[in-house]
Write a protein that binds this DNA or RNA. Structure first.
Lengths: 139, 139
DNA sequence: GCTTGACCTTCCCATGATGGGAACCCCACA
DNA sequence: TGTGGGGTTCCCATCATGGGAAGGTCAAGC
């Protein structure tokens, strides 16, 4: 069981040292053992958890979800139903955000297409911002 | 020229009073005239600008973009090319963010489909978080 | 005139996730 | 023994927004 410093833990887990300390401060991970010099050192399990968190973050999970996923991950007796529920809830949230962004970009794209983009001041984009025009999906 | 208080300005513009003060503090809008009681009062032009900002925010523009758009909007001699450039840059940013979210939700959706979601502990979702699996687009 | 309630003011704090940097301590190596 | 590269804590910044406290002000009803 090799013990590593925070910078080494950061390198192997892909989580910055800054974030590792932060995760500890909000109780997402347990406080690791300290040396006599008060340096943190991390064991295999801790490194594993950090990598887990890293991948969950890459999938856009927030800390509350990650907290629950970590709990389920540690529990060998867990039911996969809970994991699936968290994942599907998150999928719905991601899809909603993506749809909102897409709607914005579509609206703006259509406006930009109708904008000459030359020396003339006329511009449907500014006109749309100017007047309380119809909702976005009307374009 | 009717002058209104901040709460009335909030109601007609759709921007909260809190945000109106904030926009003023960061110099996004000019400081309005004050009454003897130091109450802010807003004229037609100010209300118009607030509504403009509101709609720009609805399209996802950040404050720096809005600052520039407001400048172009006030300038009757502006060229539409600058407006279009800002808009298209923003469209690209929105599309990129939307694509990132969609990629996450796709990955997670596929994993969830392969998860029984019953009493059994086996779960591809946790397995994916557990091991440094292939990148998301491999699913 | 006085109370009451609704409004205004400024100031501080919080979010979520992350980075930057200061000030200070510690260790290994030449 | 100096130097460089760790480690530690603490504060501040982001982006846009909301909550709330403490205190001043106004208008309406009695």
């Amino acid at each position: 069981m090799s013990l590593v410093t925070i910078t080494q833990a950061a390198q192997v887990s892909g989580v910055s040292a800054k974030m590792i300390r932060y995760y500890e401060s909000i109780g997402l991970i347990a406080a690791p053992a300290r040396g006599e010099n008060r340096y943190r050192h991390y064991d295999e399990t801790a490194l594993h958890e950090l990598a887990f968190i890293r991948r969950a973050r890459d999938l856009g999970f927030g800390f509350e979800d990650i907290r629950q996923l970590l709990g389920l991950w540690r529990d060998r007796q867990r039911s996969s139903a809970e994991v699936k529920a968290i994942a599907l809830r998150h999928v719905a949230a991601l899809e909603q955000k993506a749809a909102a962004l897409t709607a914005m970009s579509q609206t703006l794209k259509h406006l930009a297409e109708r904008c000459h983009g030359d020396e003339r001041p006329d511009c449907p984009i500014l006109e749309a911002l100017d007047q309380p025009g119809p909702p976005a999906h009307a374009w």
